[in-house]
Computed example of a mutant assay.
Amino acid sequence: MDRPIADGLYSCWMHPAPSNETATATANNSSSAVPVSTVNRLPQEERSLAVNVQGTAPVGVTVRVKNIEVGTDATILDVSASYGGTASSDVTLAGSPTYLLDEQGNRLMLKPPQDDRDLRITKGQTMDGKLVFLGAVAEGTKAVKLVFNDNNDGNSIIDPGLTIALPLDDAAK
């Protein structure tokens, strides 16, 4: 039986639009400013990229990314995820940090659905739906990596690790 992964984009924390120039954000706890992150030029409009990329983890997890919506406040992936392994009755795709990683090392964290925060998949089942990542992919980014269960082995029977490279530059062609 198929079920949605995420319940759509809502109640996201909104920030003011950054300038078009690259800037450094600072934290000012004393008289000296300390750099905390780099802000890149963000997209001014939404775009949809058709992709067909699949990744597998040795434990029996298969994830296929079908579409990427690059928005101004969030990045949304249309995915199909299955668990066909026999090592356990289910696995989770977000029991450990799950995020999109860009070329500069910035992480766009998953906004987990309220009814399935760990993205649990039962043996023999497939989940079709959208994964919402908080934040926009910077303009000019050629690829991102989709990281499930950061730093976990792909053979883990609880939270298997899986990283999938997603091209952005040629995806829409």
Rank of each mutant, 00 (worst) to 15 (best):
D2C: 08
R3E: 07
R3S: 14
D7F: 08
G8V: 06
G8E: 11
Y10E: 14
Y10G: 15
M14Q: 12
H15I: 05
H15M: 10
H15S: 08
P18I: 00
N20V: 03
T22M: 08
T22P: 03
T24N: 02
T24E: 02
T26P: 04
N28E: 09
S31K: 08
P35S: 03
V36T: 06
S37V: 03
V39Q: 13
V39H: 06
V39W: 04
R41I: 02
L42A: 13
E45A: 14
E46T: 13
R47Y: 04
R47T: 10
T56D: 15
A57K: 02
P58S: 14
V59I: 15
V59T: 07
G60F: 11
V63H: 10
R64E: 13
R64Y: 01
V65W: 03
K66A: 14
I68C: 06
V70I: 15
A74E: 14
V79C: 02
A81T: 02
S82E: 05
S82T: 12
Y83H: 03
G85H: 05
T86N: 10
S89V: 00
D90Q: 15
P97H: 05
P97S: 10
Y99Q: 15
E103G: 06
Q104R: 07
R107D: 00
R107H: 08
L108R: 10
L108M: 15
L110G: 12
L110W: 03
P113R: 03
Q114Y: 13
Q114P: 06
Q114A: 15
R120V: 08
K123T: 08
G124M: 07
G124N: 04
Q125D: 13
T126D: 01
M127V: 08
K130E: 15
V132I: 13
E139R: 01
E139I: 05
E139G: 01
T141R: 01
A143W: 03
V144M: 02
K145S: 15
K145R: 14
L146H: 07
F148M: 11
D150Q: 12
D150H: 13
D153S: 15
N155Q: 00
S156F: 09
D159W: 12
P160E: 03
P160R: 07
T163M: 14
I164K: 13
L168P: 11
D169I: 08
D170N: 14
